[in-house]
Computed example of a mutant assay.
Amino acid sequence: MDTAALRPGHAAVVPWPKTLSAPADGALDLWLLHVPDPWLAGAVLDTSPLDERERTRAASFVHAVDRAKYVASHLMLRRLLGAYLDRPAGEVAFVREPCPCCGAPHGRPALAGDGPHFSLSHGGNLVLVGVAAAPVGVDTEQLPAAHTVGQVATALHPDEQREVMSAPAVRRAAVFTRLWVRKEAYLKGLGTGLGRSPALDYLGNGGPGTPAWPAGWTIVDVPVGAGHAAAAVRGPIGSRYDVARLDPQELAA
């Protein structure tokens, strides 16, 4: 992986797009949505674009805020992909690719028919969508409590574990979360998810004696502000990537 040549686009709030050009080879479009709990608690969201599976999943959430967060993230994904495909959000159809680990149809989500590759993540109060001409993975997470860091860090590559545990206590959660979102984004890009052990690949900060990052992938540490971390990975990326923030108010019914 190589991050040296990447220049992030300005993460300004932009209008929700009605039409979008397909990402060019080497380009990466990143879309951010901030959905604070007070807004989610009072939001009335139009679920009509969602398909039956999405509505069933939304209804399964016990807490209203969690349900609204799921609905908001999937409405965001559908509206963006609809803009790329030039079709209504409700007409965007999804399939599952074969799992690289076992071949079963529970691998990376994909569009039915032609269209760009995409990845969706929601963590804490952020939703992140990545769209590219080649397979892409994104992940965003809220910084966890200290005891969670100690428990989950043991799943990382041994050199990543050392980086986390050698960090000052006050920074340990931030270091862990930065490495974790890179790892989850990479596994999504592969299409395996956590079906592939997070301990197998090194995506740490480098240094003497550390392994190389996986060949053929590029990592992007996405700027999302305090309290969260986010990352995106895909194949070779050109000289820039774009990050755009969307206004959640436009999701309201």
Rank of each mutant, 00 (worst) to 15 (best):
A41P: 08
E163L: 00
V224A: 02
V95H: 10
A167G: 14
T177L: 05
L33N: 00
L126N: 00
G82L: 03
C101P: 05
A112Y: 06
A112W: 09
L33D: 03
K18V: 14
R178G: 05
N205M: 15
L156C: 10
G124R: 08
L45N: 00
G227P: 02
L203H: 04
A229W: 02
Q249I: 07
R245W: 14
P168C: 07
V149C: 08
A5W: 14
A72F: 03
S239W: 14
R240A: 15
P98A: 14
L45Q: 00
A27D: 11
D221A: 00
V13T: 15
V14G: 04
R67H: 04
V220A: 05
H34G: 10
F94K: 03
G26W: 06
V233C: 13
P168L: 10
A58W: 06
D51V: 05
V164C: 07
G90F: 01
L40H: 13
E52M: 07
R53A: 15
M165Q: 15
H74G: 06
C102G: 07
L40A: 07
P158E: 12
E54Q: 11
G238S: 13
S239G: 14
A4T: 13
D2Y: 01
R171N: 14
E97C: 04
N125G: 13
S166H: 13
T56L: 08
D51R: 05
D139T: 06
W31C: 08
H63S: 15
A89C: 04
D159T: 12
A134L: 10
S166L: 12
P158V: 13
R87Y: 11
A252C: 15
P158G: 01
Q161E: 07
R79G: 02
A229S: 11
G113L: 01
A133P: 05
M76W: 01
C99L: 09
Q142K: 14
E141T: 11
C99H: 13
P198W: 09
A83M: 09
L120M: 08
V170G: 08
D25H: 11
G26T: 02
S21N: 09
F94V: 07
G137N: 12
G137W: 10
P198H: 01
L50A: 02
G195L: 11
L45K: 10
R196W: 14
G189R: 03
E160S: 01
G137I: 07
H74V: 00
D221P: 05
L111Q: 02
R171C: 11
V181I: 08
V181T: 14
R162H: 13
S121H: 02
F118D: 07
A72G: 15
H157N: 02
T148W: 12
H74R: 02
D242G: 04
M76I: 10
A167S: 14
F176N: 04
D114C: 07
G150N: 08
N125M: 12
K18R: 15
P23W: 01
G235N: 06
G123W: 00
D37H: 09
Q142R: 15
P135L: 03
L33H: 03
